[in-house]
Every structure is written in structure tokens, then in C-alpha cells.
Amino acid sequence: MFKLTPAAAEQVLKAAKQGNAEGMSLRLAAEQKPDGAIEYRMGFEDSIQEDDIRFQSEGVDLVLSPEDVPLLDQATMDYAEVEPGKMHFIFLNPKDPHYKPPSDG
């Protein structure tokens, strides 16, 4: 199933507090582009649909629509320094053909 790293969870919870979205779930969505790349979307939401899949990762309430599960299953969202001094949410997803596993070291 989809999961958050501790760094991503900490940042999501900070964003929820700053945006007056505490208590709302983080909805994640994914769309596969023609070249196979996966585009990700996320936002806080308090309107949960009957068929949505709800779960927790690192203390964050997450929600996915059933059609997003195949693309997001086995993915991890991290919050990392992509460029010096610039932190971003990144998605580590082995189902994305552009995914490169992080190197150890």
C-alpha cells in the first residue's frame, strides 16, 4: 500500500496546521501520461466518498479513490531536498517508468 516517510508526514501535518486543514484527510490521486510517466496530485479534503479507501501512514489520514490504487500501490511519498536549499514532496514509485531508486550512499 502507499506510505509516507516520517519527513513527508511531518511536513503534511505542518501544512495542515498552517492551512487550517487539521483533521482533514490528505487525498492522493495519480494519472498515467501517454509516455507512461505518472502525475501526482494531493490536497486536504473532508468530503470522503463511500467507495474511497481510507488508511493511515505515519499518523496522517490518507484517502484514495479506488481507481487510483493501481498506480499508487507500492509508492512512497517523501519530503526531500531536491536542489540545495529546496525541499519538495517526491514520489518514489516503482510503477513509474521514470522512477530511479534512491542510491545508498
Rank of each mutant, 00 (worst) to 15 (best):
M1I: 06
M1P: 02
K3T: 12
K3W: 05
K3F: 05
K3L: 10
L4P: 09
A8H: 08
V12K: 02
V12H: 03
V12W: 02
L13S: 09
L13Y: 06
K14L: 11
K14E: 10
K14T: 11
Q18A: 15
A21Q: 14
L26N: 00
L26V: 12
R27C: 01
L28K: 00
L28C: 06
L28V: 13
A29N: 10
A30E: 02
E31Q: 15
E31D: 10
E31G: 08
Q32C: 08
Q32D: 07
D35R: 02
G36V: 11
A37M: 06
A37I: 04
I38A: 06
I38T: 06
E39M: 10
E39Y: 05
E39I: 03
E39Q: 14
G43A: 04
G43V: 00
G43H: 05
F44Q: 01
F44C: 02
F44D: 02
E45V: 14
S47K: 14
I48N: 02
E50D: 12
D52N: 07
I53V: 14
I53R: 06
I53C: 06
R54I: 08
Q56Y: 11
S57F: 08
S57Q: 10
E58Y: 05
E58Q: 15
G59I: 01
G59D: 03
V63F: 01
V63K: 01
V63G: 00
L64S: 03
S65M: 07
S65P: 03
S65D: 01
E67K: 15
P70Q: 09
L71A: 11
L72I: 08
D73Q: 15
Q74A: 11
A75W: 03
T76K: 15
M77R: 04
D78P: 01
Y79E: 04
A80M: 05
A80N: 03
E81T: 09
E81F: 07
K86R: 15
K86I: 10
H88C: 10
F89H: 04
F89I: 05
F89D: 03
F89R: 03
F89Y: 15
I90S: 00
L92A: 07
L92W: 13
P94M: 10
H98Q: 15
P102C: 13
S103E: 15
D104E: 14
D104A: 14
D104C: 07
G105D: 09
G105T: 04
